[in-house]
Design a protein around this nucleic acid. Structure first.
Length: 887
RNA sequence: GGGCGGCUAGCUCAGCUGGUUAGAGCGCCUGGUUUACACCCAGGAGGUCACAGGUUCGAGCCCUGUGCCGCCCACCA
């Protein structure tokens, strides 16, 4: 006997272990049975190895699991390939902070080897936690194929790609300004920089003309950079400064003469119209510097302290200390011309939070422009489709304006760049040191000591190879042949540039084929008020806690049902409670079946059911199978969830079970047996359809109602539709029944008939079909509408409350127990609605243009509609008259 | 500054290619010991589809403009 509610805690971990042990997570079993099975592949967006499962992961991985379970049940060789990402900066930073917090020596004191060793230790300890958490979510990943971006295999793929792109001149070394994170002391890519609004100041400084004939005022928010100024620019069309171009100012503090140059970059509208140029520390100034061949003076060391290029009293100062000192000195020297507070955005490293400094260094770059072209074409041609489709615009916008991708990082945790320097600085890029040595020998004519590049690659470089490196590339493995390209990528739109775009570029370049056919971008989860979840705000919903509180299925169903909201999802505990209740509803429907002997019957064939009720639910089930299948196929997860919610609750529980009750309590053994078998069969369909979204409750109930021949539900076959099982006649009949019951219930409530009172129902003007239906379902209707009797008559009894029931008129002779005033109001309200409707329709039909131009069926529909409204109105008006005469 | 999206019931959202009376869940109100379920059942109220024009026989849906909200990118001397 089932309990009143589903005890999810008792089964979740146990079921997960059983699924895994059964081999269901791997496609190998399916392939062994059917080598021709169609492959279906998803690669997981690899979470950071040291990360913890947050609600965004829960959503993303739930959707992937829904899809993979669905395709697995459809008989495909479904592979969901899991793994983790080494997450260079994030992990290194975490370990460094950990070391500092526990009073250990820092990474530089420790040395590269020892530090990397520490990170691996940390990975060994915490790396498993995210995958454990994915298991708690029910994720049916093929753990036997789990990969890590720093695996030997994946590292080999990284080296091969690097070398290959280098030989094709698509990876090159260049000295230019990068975004430098002085805390991590590494370059970062444009994407890793985020603008933050901060309070600052706007200072105006005077730079005196060298010939003593005056001064030029410039403005800056970063006074310390003046120590690296090498020019002052004015717009060539700016009359105020025309005469000064070619002259020099004397840079205060430093004493360096700076040429006044004419350049379009200077905007006469901004500030004084004259702008200081610091080519080594500003992206715009860098370009100006290149155009005018200005010296580029780097004034910072890697920690953004001032270096030897500045006057002695500034050397070694932190940039912010130097800023203060510059301002004070400029004021003391009489060059300060004004200061005002301002709020402006300043670039920060998204991981470290440090203010990023444009910094002149040698770095490795990928020529993204070239790689982007085939990727854009593939999306244009629909070889990969994005959902929602609007995200394609975002993709194109970025790809069209793509900049060279800086891929080197001055970190220790990551893929070491396969480049070796010879004694003369010549670079040898090879997959291994031995090959580099060989290349060097060939070049120098003898063995020379080589030094490997200290840098590692951007984490996203290896992530970009994920869809094929995880399948064994560069080896031509059976997995690679079978499972590439993958089918659907489900990920957050926040990494469309970081990851999706790069996988497109790399996949096309190295596999000659898109990495995935479809990309589904899932929404961002916000709190109930629509704010981003953050630890500092304390509004974080922890998925593991939610699983403990409501069960995994409740969380999964909630996330799936809300996933249709392409932009963001406002999540609250109340929402999850609501969907938890849905699970309980299903559970109790199963309990009802169990209590009433609705057990699966061996050899039962729904094709043979005879009663209207059973033919009806059979058709409804078909419709639901079709809807769920179509929705899941299209990646419309929320639609599938909603279709199942409606069918299970509003069709199966609200009507089928209620209508089955009298049958099950009756003594028509044949009908009873058919209904029991049909109920169990329908429940089975529900379990199968719901399994991808709510695997635990369905698998548990499958133990009771499933087909033992099919084994575990996770590996059972997805239901098929049969159009001949949709029975229009049965559908019409049950719709009529439901409508009749609804009408009576509604009238009872509106006219304040006491719930316990059993009223008689009289049907006036019932046709043959209605009479027939009544004969079949009278007992059911009496029960559901709480009627004493149902009779047929030629005229309504006096004082009866009347309503429209198809071609007939329903009459409840309950004048004694109803409130006449409410009844009058009810009739008046209904008549008013019908009148308005009829008038609107009549007006439409009176329009010659409408009749002439609208399609015939629309016109016909309106004619019918008008006729029906008028007939119904007439009935109710008659009823109202009679009521007046009695009342 | 550039781009993208949103605005539909008190709240959160559906509403696919224009065509009956614009839907759901939650919340609210009324009633309910109907032997699966109170994590429930029955009923009900609640909408100028942001605004203004336009196209059309017909607009929540298409077009133009306005307002507000949000996101992304770039920049800010």
């Amino acid at each position: 006997m089932l309990d009143k509610t589903f005890d999810f805690k008792a089964v979740e971990t146990d079921l997960y272990d059983r699924w895994e042990a059964s081999g269901a997570f791997s496609p190998d079993g399916v392939l062994a049975r059917n080598p021709e099975a169609e492959p279906f592949t998803i690669v997981i967006p690899p979470p950071n190895v040291t990360g913890a499962l947050h609600i965004g992961h829960a959503l993303n991985n739930t959707l992937q699991d829904v899809l993979i379970r669905f395709e697995r049940m459809r008989g495909k060789a479904a592979l969901w390939l899991p793994g983790t990402d080494h997450a260079g900066i994030a992990t290194q930073m975490m370990v460094e902070r950990q070391l500092a917090a526990s009073g250990n020596m820092g990474r530089r004191d420790m040395g590269r080897e020892a530090f990397v060793e520490k990170v691996w230790e940390w990975k060994a300890v915490s790396g498993a936690s995210i995958t454990k958490q994915l298991r708690r979510l029910g994720a049916s990943c093929d753990w036997s194929r789990e990969r890590f971006t720093l695996d030997e295999g994946l590292s080999r793929a990284v080296r091969k790609v690097f070398v290959s792109l280098h030989k094709q001149k698509l990876i090159y070394r260049d000295k230019r300004l990068v975004n430098w994170d002085p805390e991590m002391q590494t370059a970062i890519s444009d994407l890793e920089v985020e603008q933050r609004e901060v309070d600052g100041h706007f200072w105006r400084f005077a730079y005196p003309l060298e010939d003593g004939s005056g001064e030029i005022v410039i403005a800056t928010t970063r006074p310390e950079t003046m120590l690296g100024d090498t020019a002052v620019a004015v717009n060539p069309s700016d009359e105020r400064y025309k005469a000064l171009v070619g002259k020099c100012v004397r840079l205060p503090i430093v004493g360096r003469p700076l040429p006044i140059i004419a350049d379009e970059y200077a905007d006469p509208e901004k500030g004084s119209g004259a702008v200081k140029i610091t080519p080594a520390h500003d992206f715009n100034d860098f370009r100006v510097g290149q155009r005018h061949r200005l010296p580029m003076i780097n004034i910072f060391d890697p920690q953004a302290r001032l270096n030897g290029e500045v006057p002695p009293e500034y050397r070694g100062l932190d940039r912010f200390t130097a800023r203060k000192k510059v301002v004070e000195t400029m004021e003391a020297l009489g060059f300060l011309r004004g200061v005002e507070p301002t709020r402006h955005s300043v670039p920060h490293g998204e991981r470290s939070g440090a203010v990023v400094e444009p910094y002149l260094t040698d770095q490795w770059y990928v020529d993204a422009k070239v790689l982007a072209q085939p990727a854009m074409r593939a999306v244009e041609e629909g070889k990969t489709v994005f959902e929602p489709a609007a995200s394609e615009k975002t993709f194109f916008e970025w790809m069209r304006n793509i900049e060279p991708w800086c891929i080197s990082r001055q970190l220790w945790w990551g893929h070491r760049i396969p480049a070796w320097f010879g004694p003369d600085g010549r670079i040898f890029v090879e997959e291994t040191e031995a090959e580099a040595m060989g290349a060097a020998r060939e070049h120098y004519g003898r063995d020379e000591p080589l030094r490997q590049d200290e840098d590692v690659l951007d984490t996203w470089f290896s992530s970009g190879l994920w869809p094929f490196s995880t399948l064994g590339w560069p080896e031509e493995t059976p997995d690679l042949r079978r499972f590439y390209p993958t089918h659907t990528l489900i990920t957050g739109v926040d990494i469309i540039f970081y990851w999706v775009a790069r996988m497109m570029m790399m996949g096309l370049r190295f596999m000659g084929e898109v990495p995935f056919r479809r990309v589904v971008f899932n929404a961002l989860i916000l709190d109930a008020e629509g704010r981003k979840m953050s630890k500092t705000k304390g509004n974080v919903l922890d998925p593991l806690e939610l699983i403990d509180d409501y069960g995994c299925d409740a969380l999964r169903f909630t996330l799936t049902a809300l996933s249709g909201q392409a932009r963001n999802i406002k999540l609250s505990r109340e929402r999850i409670e609501g969907y938890r209740n849905f699970g309980t509803k299903l559970w109790n429907a199963a309990r009802f079946c169990q209590l009433n002997g609705c057990a699966p019957v061996e050899g039962f064939d729904p094709d043979a059911v005879e009663t209207t009720l059973n033919r009806w639910i059979r058709g409804e089930a078909m419709g639901t199978i079709a809807a769920a299948t179509e929705a899941l196929d299209a990646g419309a997860f929320a639609e599938a969830a909603n279709a199942l919610y409606r069918f299970i609750w509003n069709v199966f529980c609200d009507w089928y079970v209620e209508l089955a009750k009298p049958i099950l309590a009756g003594d028509d053994e044949a009908t009873k047996a058919e209904t029991r078998a049909m109920a169990a069969w329908t429940l089975r369909v529900c379990l199968k359809l719901l399994h991808p979204i709510s695997p635990f409750i369905t698998e548990t109930l499958w133990g009771e109602f499933g087909d033992p021949a099919e084994g575990l539900l996770i590996s059972a076959a997805w239901p098929e539709t049969r159009s001949d099982w949709i029975d229009a006649e049965a559908a019409a009949e049950i719709a009529w029944l439901i409508d009749l019951v609804d009408s009576v219930r509604s009238i009872r409530a509106e006219t304040n008939v006491p719930p316990a009172a059993r009223a008689p129902l009289v049907l006036v003007g019932a046709g043959a079909v209605t009479r027939e239906r009544l004969a079949r379902h009278g007992v059911l209707i009496e029960r559901l509408a709480r009627l004493a009797t149902i009779e047929l008559a030629n005229a309504p009894p006096p004082g009866a409350v009347q309503f429209v029931a198809g071609e007939a008129t329903g009459a409840l002779p309950i004048a004694g127990i109803i409130d006449v005033a409410s009844e009058r109001a009810r009739l008046a309200k209904d008549i008013a609605a019908l009148t308005a409707d009829a008038e609107k329709t009549a007006k439409r039909l009176a329009n010659a243009d409408f009749v002439a131009r609208a399609p015939e069926e629309v016109v016909e529909e309106n004619r019918e509609r008008l006729a029906e409204a008028e007939a119904a109105k007439a009935k109710l008006e008659g009823a109202l008259e009679r009521l007046e005469s009695v009342g």
